[in-house]
């Protein structure tokens, strides 16, 4: 549509406007958009701005908030070793669980793709943990890790490796990794489905040509399938990594951040500082949330930039 036509429409509103299905009356737009925008303004935009405001104040119950400038951030970065412990744990979690999620999901998808019998049924069963809540998954795995009757130790004893039995969630050396295993178990099916869709979208003739060339399945995987899945792999890596930087539920349910801060993550620390510690200050945890959000934003931008760069180089 040319600009002149647009101007003409604006000049003579009623008949052309009524016939142009790309335009709606102001009343229609208000009716359709107002509920969402009001809700957003009050319960998304305002809370975010208020958290930023909170982060430069000290806010105690029944008290006037006191402006403290960047003190919260200084304390946080300077001498809050629990925060740094939490950052370290979250980083370990995000890095290792992401790698395991992506590789494991690919492995499961390849198993289904290579025409294992009952593939449709297996796909449904393998996806089940994705649908379950963290509370359900967490409690089941707390039992599995139980020292006396949990499945992990029962199996170790049964195969004669009783020496390796552990109080999996009670020992600071194993707790973080045990929670991680549970998290990976819950999300593998999700990555599997995405990879499976990508595998079925691969051009059949390329895979067929590899077959004719008598290419072994491993060579086929390394030289053909994985390069062609690169966009999916990068996409899932970003999604998975960013999700794990915010991890709260499973850690809170299984260990509450303990023992000895060995599973404390940034999010559980925010919650604890706000509601469990008797500092009763909402300003300091808000500062943690703001700082962490900015770091997550940087990661999202950096990772998407890298993805774009890669795509440009390859195609």
């Amino acid at each position: 549509m040319t600009e002149r036509a647009l101007r003409q429409r604006a000049a003579t509103p009623s008949p052309p406007l009524a016939l142009d299905a790309r335009r709606a009356s102001r009343a229609t737009l208000i009716i359709l958009l107002a509920p969402a925008l009001l809700l957003y303004a009050a319960f998304m935009v305002y809370p975010v701005l208020r958290t930023f405001w909170n982060s430069v104040h000290t806010i105690k119950p029944n008290n006037v908030p006191a402006f403290v400038g960047l003190d919260n951030f200084r304390a946080l970065l300077g001498h809050d070793w629990v925060f740094w412990k939490a950052v370290g744990n979250t980083a370990i979690f995000a890095i290792f669980a992401t790698i395991a999620d992506v590789l494991g999901g690919l492995l499961l998808a390849l198993a289904l793709f290579s025409r294992v019998p009952f593939a449709r049924f297996l796909r449904v069963v393998w996806f089940t943990p994705v649908l379950m809540s963290y509370v359900v998954v967490g409690i089941i795995w707390v039992w599995i890790y139980d020292y006396d009757w949990g499945l992990a130790n029962v199996i170790l004893r049964a195969v004669g490796l009783g020496g390796f039995e552990q109080s999996w969630l009670g020992d600071p050396r194993t707790a973080l990794w045990s929670v991680m295993v549970t998290h990976i178990w819950k999300w593998l099916g999700f990555n599997m489905i995405i990879f499976l869709a990508a595998l079925y979208a691969l051009p059949v003739d390329v895979l067929g040509a590899a077959e004719l060339d008598n290419c072994g399945w491993f060579a086929k995987l390394i030289h053909i399938i994985i390069p062609m899945l690169k966009p999916t792999i990068l996409n899932l890596t970003v999604l998975s990594f960013v999700g794990k930087m915010m991890i709260f539920d499973l850690v809170w349910i299984m260990t509450g951040g303990g023992p000895l801060w060995s599973t404390e993550t940034v999010s559980t620390y925010v919650y604890k500082r706000a509601f469990d510690w008797n500092t009763f200050d909402l300003g300091y945890p808000s500062a943690i949330a703001v700082l962490w959000f900015l770091i997550i934003l940087v990661f999202i931008f950096a990772l998407t930039q890298i993805m774009r760069q890669r795509e440009r180089l390859e195609f």
Binding site: Y40, A42, M44, Y46, V48, N54, S286, W292, F293
Partner: peptide, 24 residues
């Protein structure tokens, strides 16, 4: 603008809003 505001909700972590939502 409407699209940007609404869709940006996808990258906001719940932790960023939860404390002020509690107050609000």
């Amino acid at each position: 603008l409407v699209r940007f505001v609404i869709l940006s909700g996808m990258i906001l972590p719940p932790q960023l809003m939860i404390l002020s939502l509690f107050q609000i």
